[in-house]
Amino acid sequence: MALLGASGVAGLTALILLLVEAASVLLPADLKFGIVFDAGSSHTSLFLYQWPADKENGTGVVSQALACQVEGPGISSYASDPAQAGESLQGCLEEALVLIPEAQRRKTPTFLGATAGMRLLRQKNSSQARDIFAAVTQVLGRSPVDFWGAELLAGQDEGAFGWITVNYGLGMLVKYSFTGEWIRPPEETLVGALDMGGASTQITFVPGGPISDKSTQADFRLYGSDYSVYTHSYLCFGRDQMLSRLLIGLVQAFSNFYYTFHFLNLTSGQPLSTANATIWEFCQRSWKLVEASYPGQDRWLRDYCASGLYILTLLRDGYGFSEETWPTIQFRKQADGIDIGWTLGYMLNLTGMIPAEAPAQWRAQSHSIWVATVVFLVLTLVTVLGAASVQLFWVQD
């Protein structure tokens, strides 16, 4: 009886420790996912994003989980075979699905935004553009995701979402402080965004005064703050379109500001005079010397002179950058590990439409209390086994 009494006391003590000393803690929030297809003029890219389900002040703190370039040209190139435009997306979509838990796939918003290439096709042949969108919708609509649609993205939206991406990646919209809190940096730190694709170029910034032409204004609410930006898109002034007018074939649509100036080694903050001299010096070389200096780069080599001069002219004469303001331009491909473009800005804006989820709660104990609880549970087990063995001994005797 003494052993049974001791086991009862030890078990009761362990139970009290479990119930009285336990505290409620918040478990890490589940992750949500989103997929955005950037259907550009000469290629399509898929971006998979993720963010904690509880969000921060109404907006997700989004990170890039995957960037996948779709094989083949842009979807506008499939005017004669629209079905292939949809099928071309399958490979990258399957890569993204591998990273999304199966239970989350039906809750993953998926969107395809087509930019200047499809804008030009719609102007030339609206029925072909409709057929391509229908084919894309059919493929993505039957995939195991929450398909939000395939649409033609307005040039102003492309520029505005790109502005969000740049400022988010640079930590200008929200930043995690040393005190463990999310804070909003001063508005004076916001930067403007320039983007050049294959068929259009965009400029977006926060103006110093009111915007008189409301068609060039975009408004956002992100992380509890309101933003109003000036944005304008120039169709047919992208790199491919410009070079096409010079009778040079080109099928590249990346962020051409960065790639051209990176090739010319002009992305380190050099002054305008250096950029001007470097581009002209390169353009004045003989073709044989250029080929010998850059072996293995024949595919794009012939275009860097024309595109370099075009970017220089656009920034200096078109947008008005001078010797004094030129050093403020940063030529980047990524910001904080995030590809610069309109897709992340779209996803950040989209998270505001998705309800936040409260983090789950759990009962937890300190390490010392947990150790004491385990000790008393072990004592309970030992005394119970001891009492059982003594009783068995008496019965056998």
Rank of each mutant, 00 (worst) to 15 (best):
Q241S: 14
G180E: 11
F111H: 02
S126C: 07
F37V: 08
Q391C: 13
V382H: 00
F254S: 09
F393A: 11
L121M: 04
E181C: 12
Y304N: 08
Q365G: 04
D54M: 04
S126R: 11
R130Y: 07
A388L: 13
S212K: 10
A356N: 08
G238T: 02
P327E: 09
D213C: 12
V98K: 13
L344H: 05
V229T: 08
Q69P: 08
V61D: 06
E158R: 03
A22T: 11
G341N: 04
Q252L: 14
A360P: 01
G238S: 03
A253G: 10
R285H: 12
I354K: 02
P109E: 07
L120C: 03
H232F: 04
F161P: 00
Y168N: 04
F376H: 06
A193Q: 10
V384P: 01
T110A: 14
Y230N: 03
Q90Y: 04
S273R: 14
V229M: 07
A39M: 08
V395T: 09
Y258W: 11
S225W: 09
F178H: 08
D38S: 02
T137M: 04
V70I: 15
G8H: 07
L121H: 00
V395M: 10
L243E: 10
A275Q: 02
T267S: 09
A160N: 03
L99K: 13
I75V: 15
L194W: 01
P327A: 09
T201G: 02
A134W: 01
A116H: 03
Y223Q: 05
